[in-house]
Amino acid sequence: MYQAVNAVLEKYDADMGAAEAHGMAVGMLCVELKSDAANWLHELITDQNGLFDEDKTLLADLFERSRALLDPENGEFNFDLLLPDEEEALSEQVEALRVWCLGFLFGVGYAHTDADWPGDSAEVMRDLIELTKIDSDVAGEEDEAALMEIHEYVRAAVLIVRDQFAEYKNTNMH
C-alpha cells in the first residue's frame, strides 16, 4: 500500500509522500472523525482535473480505511502508520516516521484552529514536534529497536489525541 500511494503522489507532483500524506489524514480524522476526504485530497493534489479515477479511488480508500480504523466504535485498535516495509533501509523508515509526524501535526492543525488543546493532547503534540527533528542517519539493531519503540509510541499518541478530541467535543456539545 505504501509504495502504491507513493507512486500516485509522485505521479501528480504532490508536495509529500505516502507517510506524510497518511499522517495528515490521520491528524484531520483525530480532530474530526467526519472530516471530508475531499479536503485532504485537495491539500495533496491541488489540481485534481488530471487525477485518474483509479488514483483518486486509491487515495480515498486510504482515507476511508484510516477513518474506519480510528473509529472507536470499531473496537479493536488495528490502526497503524503507513510506513515503508521493514525490508527498506532503516534510514528510510526513520525518515518516513519523521515526515508522518509532520503530516499528522499539519492535519491536526488543519482541522483544529483553536489555540486550546484538550487534555493531554498538548503534551503529545509537543512530543510529536520533537519527533519531527529526529535524525534519519541511523543503522544497527539499537536504532532499529528505538524505531520500533517510537513507532509504538506514535500509534498510542494518535489514540490519545483522538480520545481527547472526542471527549472535548462531547463536553462542549452540552
Rank of each mutant, 00 (worst) to 15 (best):
H42E: 15
V108T: 14
L128N: 01
L147E: 06
A7D: 13
M28N: 04
D143I: 00
A37F: 12
L83G: 05
D127A: 13
A7P: 00
F106I: 14
R155T: 08
E20I: 02
L51D: 00
R98C: 05
V26N: 06
L29N: 02
E10D: 15
F52N: 12
L97E: 00
Y12K: 14
G109T: 06
V161P: 00
F63D: 08
V161Q: 01
E20S: 08
G50I: 01
G109Y: 08
L83S: 03
E92L: 13
L69N: 13
C30N: 04
V124K: 01
V158A: 04
L70P: 08
L82P: 07
T46S: 15
E87S: 14
E149T: 08
L105V: 03
Q3Y: 02
L131H: 04
N170G: 08
L58M: 05
Q48L: 06
C30H: 04
V26T: 09
R67G: 08
D47L: 05
L159G: 12
E86H: 12
L131T: 02
A18F: 02
W100N: 02
V124N: 03
A89F: 07
E92G: 05
N172F: 10
R98A: 07
K133H: 11
V26D: 00
M1T: 10
E144K: 07
L105R: 08
A166M: 09
L29K: 06
A89G: 05
G140T: 11
R98K: 15
S136R: 07
I45F: 03
Y110W: 14
C101L: 05
G75M: 11
C101Q: 01
